[in-house]
Nucleic acid binder design. Sequence first.
DNA 1: ATGAAAGCGCTAACAC
DNA 2: GTGTTAGCGCTTTCAT
Lengths: 335, 335
Amino acid sequence: MNIKDIAKLANISKSTVSRVINNDPKVHKDTREKILQIIKNESFIPNNIAKSLKTKKTKVIGILVPDIGNPFYYEILRGIESLLDKNNFNMMLCNTEYDSKKELKYISLLMSKKVDGIIIAPSSSISKGVNLLYEKNIPFVVLDIIQDYIKTNCVLVNHFKVSYSATSYLLKNGHKEIFILDAYRENKSLSNFRNGFIEAMKENKILIKDYYLNEASPDIIGGYKTLKKIINSKYNITAIITICDLAAVGVYKAAKELGVTIPDDISVIGNDDIPLARYLNPSLTTTRQPKFKLGYKSAEILLDCIKNENFNKENVKIYELDTKLMIRDSIKRRI
Amino acid sequence: MNIKDIAKLANISKSTVSRVINNDPKVHKDTREKILQIIKNESFIPNNIAKSLKTKKTKVIGILVPDIGNPFYYEILRGIESLLDKNNFNMMLCNTEYDSKKELKYISLLMSKKVDGIIIAPSSSISKGVNLLYEKNIPFVVLDIIQDYIKTNCVLVNHFKVSYSATSYLLKNGHKEIFILDAYRENKSLSNFRNGFIEAMKENKILIKDYYLNEASPDIIGGYKTLKKIINSKYNITAIITICDLAAVGVYKAAKELGVTIPDDISVIGNDDIPLARYLNPSLTTTRQPKFKLGYKSAEILLDCIKNENFNKENVKIYELDTKLMIRDSIKRRI
DNA sequence: ATGAAAGCGCTAACAC
DNA sequence: GTGTTAGCGCTTTCAT
C-alpha cells in the first residue's frame, strides 16, 4: 500500500495525497478530510525511505558511544532522546567499545544510511572516524572526548578543573601521595585531566613521582587492575583519583578482595557521579557531571546545524558545562 | 557522488559498479579492481536509502525499551548489539518511558522508516504497539514483558519461578510477613511474578494479607515510595520482594532516610541483578537474569525471522532463559 | 486546488 | 561479463 493506492481509493492524484500527508495548506478541506479518512481506514503508513531518497533528509541521527555498559552514557542518551523525541527524530545507537576500527565501520554504515547528523563520544582523542565526518562535511557534535588535532563542535566539562579541584580537595585533607588513573591517551601531554592534577600538585609544591601518573581502561576492569597493581607494588599511596566512577567501582572491588579498607587505607575520588556512586559503600566522593544536559546540549547543537544548514567546519565552538564536587564518604582526613 | 559518477570515471555502466559494490562474482577481475580503486580514491559511500527503496531491506532494527535509565536494559542492549554488529545491522533505539502513546508513536516512526524488524520490551502487558506490529505483519520479538492476549515470539525468564524461589527462600529464613512489589499491571491475575509469590505462600500455609500485594513503578521512585508507605502504615513487614533491582535501590534509599536498617529491620530481595546490586550496602540478594543472553537471543530470533522470511504469526514460541538466586547480605535469618 | 511528469540513487531482469 | 532499462514510493515543479 502506497500513496498511489490511496490516491486511487480517493479518485485523486497522488500529488494531492502527498500534500495531505505533508500538511500542505493548499488542499481543499473536503479533499483533505476524505484522504485522511482513507489513510486512517487503511491504517496507511507512508514510506519514509522513498521520502528520504527524494528530500535527502532522514530524521535520523547516529550516536556513537565507546561503552554502552557505562552508566555515564545512559543519562546522556536520555538527554539526547528527550530532544529528539520532541522533533520526531530517531537515533541509531552504536557501541564502539573504544575500538577505532569498529567506530569507523559504524560511521560508514551511518553515512551510507544517510543519517542527518552524528553525535560521537569518540573512542580516542585522535579519531579517524571524526576525521572522516569532518572531511565529508557531515553535521556532527563531539561529546566528552575532545579531539587533539581538529576543531569541532564539542560538548563536555572542563576536565582540567575537575582533576584540579579533586586534587586540591585531597591536598586540603592532608593527602600527598596521590595516584591518578587517566584513560589511555595517544598524546599524554594533551590530557586535561592529567594536567589539572599536575598543576594542583605543583602549586602545592608536591613532588610528582612517576608512578602517580597512570593509565587504564575507563571501566571496572581498569580500576580493578590499577588498585591491584598499586598494592602489589607496595606504593605508598593514600589516595586515588579516577577518570570515571566506573573505574572507582573497580577500585572498590579490588579493595574488597585485597582486604584494603576505603577510605581508611586508601581514599578514592571518582568523576562523573553515576547513579550508583552514592549507594556504594562507602558512598563515593566524585565530581558530578551534568550528564542529561551534556546529551541535551549536544542534540540541540546538532539539530541546529541540521535545520539551519549552517553547519560550517570553521564556525565551531567548545561548550563547557559546569560540574560540582559531591563530597561523600570515600575520603579520609589525614591531618 | 553516486554510482553513476563512479561509472563515468571508470568508463563503465553503473550496473557493473553496483555489482562490484554487492560482490557479484560475475565481474571481471580487472574491472572490479579498477572500480574498487576509484571508489577508494573518491572515498565513495553508496546510498543505502536508494538501495533500501529498491530491495525493501534496510538492515536496521528498532528497539523499544521502557526505561533507558534502567541498567537492566544496557546489558540486554549489549547482547543485541553484539549480534547486530556481526551482521552489519544498525539499531534504532527508542525510550518509551512506560508510556503507551509514546510507544505507539515510535512504532509508527520505525515502520515508516521501514526497519526490518523490531525488538520490544513493551510498556505494558497489553500493548497497542505490539498489536499494531502483529496486524501489520512486521517481524518482531517481545522481550521480558509477555503479552496477555496475543501470542508472539517472546524471550524472558520465568517470573513465576523467580518470585516463587525468592519467596521460598525468605520463608526458609523464617520470614512470614512478606511484601511484594510488582509493576503496574492491567490484569493482576495474569502476573506471574505475583502468582509465584502467592503460590509459595499458600504452599507454606501463610495467610496473604491484602497489603502484601503491591504495585509501583519499576524504578527507584517506585521502591522509594513503597518503603515509605510501609513504614508510615506501620505494617508489620519483615521482608520485601521487588520486581527489579532498581526498585530495591529505591527501598535502600528510603531506608537510609527513615533510619530503617537493612537487613536487620527489613530484608530485601531484588530481581535481575544489575551490576550495582553486589556493590550496594548491604549487597543485594537478588535473582540473576541472563541479561546479555536475553538480548542476544531476541536478536537471534528476530534476524532469523527476517532472513528466512519465515515470520509467521502462528509459528511463534516463548523462550524461557534460566535464572539464579544470588544470595548476598540483604536477608536476615529470623529463626 | 489539483494533476502530470521528472527524478532522487539504487537493483535486477533481460538482452547481448 | 557488461549494458540497457524499468521501477522502488515518494516530492516537487510546472501547468492548468
